[in-house]
Design a protein around this nucleic acid. Sequence first.
DNA 1: AGTACACTCTAACAAATGTTAATGCCGAAG
DNA 2: CTTCGGCATTAACATTTGTTAGAGTGTACT
Lengths: 239, 239
Amino acid sequence: MLESLYLNLGQHDALSDAEKALLAGAMTFERSFAVGQDIVASGSRPTYSTLILDGLAARYKVLENGGRQFTSLQVPGDFVDLHAFLLKTMDHGIVALSPCHVIFADHSRLRAITEEAPHLTRLLWLDTLVDGAIHREWIVAMGRRSKTSHLAHLLCELFVRLQVVQRTSDMTFHLPLSQAEMADVLGLSVVHMNRVIGALRRVGVVAWANHTVTILDWHRLQEIAEFDPTYLSMMREPR
Amino acid sequence: MLESLYLNLGQHDALSDAEKALLAGAMTFERSFAVGQDIVASGSRPTYSTLILDGLAARYKVLENGGRQFTSLQVPGDFVDLHAFLLKTMDHGIVALSPCHVIFADHSRLRAITEEAPHLTRLLWLDTLVDGAIHREWIVAMGRRSKTSHLAHLLCELFVRLQVVQRTSDMTFHLPLSQAEMADVLGLSVVHMNRVIGALRRVGVVAWANHTVTILDWHRLQEIAEFDPTYLSMMREPR
DNA sequence: AGTACACTCTAACAAATGTTAATGCCGAAG
DNA sequence: CTTCGGCATTAACATTTGTTAGAGTGTACT
């Protein structure tokens, strides 16, 4: 059941059976969330961290004028709020973008892991570091890429991340976001988001309909995005 | 000499003398960097992490078209590349924005800390988590704030962070960046950066000359920025 | 079958932001 | 003292992006 988590953590370094058991032992109960529901509320102080077993979720902040910005997309195998284990207070919310099935890991047991399992601790730490690396890539995309390139980069990133946890088939993956939600990812108006998607479609590198993205020309998409997956740390090496 | 580091880590939770000694024991040699020099090169695989003792530095990425985007600003007491301890390969560069005096912490000794000092490990982990929280705040600023608000937010953040490590005097702090460098922070053209700075000056909330920023109206600046320091985790509590 | 609703897409126009170029200021180097 | 070069500033114009409005489309519900 924790296959996605093992795939996610295991992509960076070998995960022993004992470590898998420790992770499994940290888990408590499961729960499902409907689309649009908050999985974690901004301002809350969770005592457990939430692992996505299935579905797509996002971190977001809302400004006074009502504007919403997603700061990350979370796929199966991601701890959406592992950082709250040490940050304590959520400074943002986490919402389900598709029906989400999750499982909760108790902070007291995570703490026990940090006391007794240094290597596993480093892997969990690493998981949050990759999070940060993704954030940096998003900052670069928002600041200095063309909007088309930004979108292309996002699709490359999602494809690769979903591939790791075996949520792609061929060059296709499911992307349940509406264009309004995509606009909240890229920081655009809905109208302009529509223009940018249209532009990328017109180039012919992706097909995108019914919430399903098909990459028609991976090489060219990667070129448009200047996508270099180094930041995802997918090399398996001692950590 | 590591006062800034102790202030930085110690703002989140109590740091024992034993832990301070462990940190001091991880340090090896010191070095100075001139303005514009790379402190860490993109693509390198450092075997030590760099702590800023004095000066201002920034993480950055460069795109094929020559555009540069800063992804963070680093102040004294910050480990600029603590993440490389586990990420291994630098996917971005780090440059000195003012003359920087730094000290290097050996990865092998950091690893020893993770094996033997769980609480200190959690504090170092936390340090990288705050990094991530700042990244998220930057993403929100780039995506959904007005440029004036973004700039105001950046000044609020810098002021608070510099205050923690005692690099402010009254409502004033040193900001060595040129407007071209500021543009690479906010993701703007130099001309527009100049307009935005002019706008914030005209409002009368900050004075800014000779690389020195004076906050004239903290309350209103915070209002313009919608600045809420929660994300910096400055509450001292058990971690 | 008909209605309501959410979503995509387009058009027309307004506002924000980028580009190019020129001016002035000031400190470093000769 | 003079010259040079980097930086801040402004203007004029081009391009990108936002806003408002509306038309089309498909699906769930009655």
